[in-house]
């Protein structure tokens, strides 16, 4: 187990008379190499939750373990954890500050105390992993397009070569093409053995790629399971302000009209085959 959260709660005002909890009694664990998605409505506590994993927030109560070590323990040194767990915040392009793309990506490795050559080598590997064009390495990060900036920012985290990559809404504000790029990049990274945790409120983003989905609702963990399992609860998901992927709705309509189709279909390819079958009959 890479991460283990035990009965974790968090309140921004723990001393208030009736504290409001951003995260309330949440327990789950993450295996190494998993592709996990956390979904939930705005304010459901998903962004708070991922900050525990990087030690940026300390839960008000409960324990968090990383590779068997309790990171919520007193006196725990976060520097090693932050190297091994890469956290990419929402709109990560707002963190860029250096004069060139390459220097900016070097910032993380530099903080790790690596020598110059190793910094550069890691930065280049990270930029290649996000498929950033080589001829733009010396450009100012402020001259790039939105999608390019985001890829540089993600590379900035990847350059630390973490064991686990956590991305908070990485596709927000990107066009369909940029979105596709980021998601397939996530899958490639997972293929190379990195644990990927994706936070999103777009069902279509997570349905196709995630192996497991956690559903958060007002600070509580509602569902934890494989996509096919979770999206079976379409009505309950809609009740908490979420939805299911388009294909799930399509199958539901077909079923209503008496066709024999599976209840939950998550990718468009599969849905296409089913539709073609129906037309053939």
């Amino acid at each position: 187990m890479q991460f283990e959260l035990k009965d974790v709660s968090f309140s921004y005002q723990p001393d208030a008379k009736e504290p409001k909890y951003a995260v309330h009694h949440v327990s789950f664990s993450v295996e190494k190499g998993e592709f996990l998605a956390i979904i939930g409505h705005t304010g459901s506590g998903k962004s708070t939750l991922i900050q525990f994993l990087d030690g940026l927030l300390k839960p008000t109560s409960g324990k968090v373990f990383f590779n068997g070590t309790e990171i919520t323990a007193k006196g725990y040194q976060y520097s090693n954890l932050r190297r091994l767990v890469g956290l990419v915040f929402q709109y990560p392009e707002h963190q860029l500050f250096e004069t060139t793309v390459l220097k900016d990506v070097c910032y993380g490795p530099k903080n790790m105390g690596l020598d110059k050559e190793e910094q550069q080598a890691r930065a280049i590997r990270a930029l290649k992993a996000v498929r950033f064009p080589e001829d733009s390495y010396e450009k100012s990060p402020f001259d790039l397009s939105g999608g390019e900036k985001r890829r540089v920012a993600i590379a900035g985290v990847l350059a630390m070569e973490p064991e686990c990559l956590i991305l908070d809404e990485p596709t927000a504000g990107l066009d369909p093409h940029g979105r596709e790029d980021i998601l397939s990049m996530c899958r490639e990274l997972q293929g190379s053995g990195i644990t990927v945790i994706l936070v999103s409120h777009s069902m279509d983003d997570v349905a196709e790629f995630a192996e497991r989905i956690l559903v958060m609702d007002s600070g509580e963990l509602k569902y934890d399971g494989a996509p096919k399992e979770v999206f079976r609860h379409v009505d309950a998901l809609e009740g908490i302000g979420l939805s299911a992927p388009e294909t799930v709705y399509l199958m539901r309509e077909l079923k209503k009209r008496g066709y024999d189709v599976p209840e939950v279909v998550l990718n468009t390819e599969e849905a296409k085959e089913i539709l073609l079958d129906i037309f053939k009959k």
């Binding site: 900050q51 990087d54 940026l56 520097s79 932050r82 190297r83 890469g86 956290l87 990419v88 915040f89 990560p92 707002h94 963190q95 910032y107 993380g108 903080n111 790790m112 900035g156 985290v157 630390m160």
Partner: peptide, 16 residues
């Protein structure tokens, strides 16, 4: 708010 966000983002990249 922005300062807090940027601080966290840079801390995640190992800033001290």
């Amino acid at each position: 708010d922005e300062v807090n966000k940027i601080m966290k983002a840079q801390q995640a990249r190992g800033a001290d």
